[in-house]
Design a protein around this nucleic acid. Structure first.
Lengths: 117, 117
DNA sequence: AGACTCACGAACAAAAATGTCAGTACCCGA
DNA sequence: TCGGGTACTGACATTTTTGTTCGTGAGTCT
């Protein structure tokens, strides 16, 4: 049951960069092309499998480009496309909001997990 | 396994407004206070249970305020807090990006679901 | 020789998110 | 008295997302 006819721009945008990892991956790619292994290390906590899945989806959305130099040992570089960079640009205010309110967000999320004293 | 020490502002922001429904709910609340039933109708496709869960989380994050007028029949109004409005403000560029690129996003997402011809 | 790197892929398992359905207590209009 | 609206709650089921484990095959390091 896909919901393609999005109800608003936010909806569409989140479909493409929402989820647990995509923003982190894109964030790391901002500093320039990254190899698979580099990403796995910098996006700490992600499993190899999930990283691949997310990268594939980001490629399919046109946000990320994959360049494979077929050497030995294998070398693959992921980078932001122009489209991806345009996304990141419009994510700047949100990132700043999160940065500015991180304390508050953290506290609220801690409270949510605590039952009752 | 909660990941509270967020790695960047984006991460924190998405923790609070990510997911399938939260953005839609916030979006609708922008036009002023809404009763539960109104929300259920305007956020079409959402089930009552999930709507409540999402609203509770948005409350816990301090983005949404719940006002209960204990009348008969019951009346409850949900509205954005100042904090919620500040979020929405920094979401404007993302919403515009999604709006501007909706066609492209839709197409890419259609392709993802199609196997191979 | 043995261990490691690289970028994955497949099979499977667990966890998280979302959905379905029924029911609550009250009142109103037909 | 029947059906509808009000704002929920709880048990349960399904779907989606994320995670674990093992294996590939050529090459380098020790």
């Amino acid at each position: 049951m896909k919901k393609r006819p999005y109800t608003c721009g936010l909806d569409a945008a989140l479909d493409v960069m929402g989820g647990k990892w995509k923003a982190l991956i894109l964030w790391d790619l901002q500093d320039g092309p990254c190899r698979f292994g580099e990403l796995r290390r910098s996006v700490q906590g992600i499993s190899e499998r999930v990283l691949i899945l997310q990268l594939r989806e980001l490629q399919a959305s046109g946000l990320v480009h994959r360049e494979s130099y077929h050497e030995v040992p294998p070398k693959v570089e992921y980078s932001l496309t122009d489209f991806g960079r345009s996304l990141m640009a419009s994510l700047v205010p949100l990132g700043e909001w999160g940065e500015a309110n991180m304390r508050r967000i953290t506290d609220a999320s801690l409270e949510r997990d605590r039952p009752a004293p």
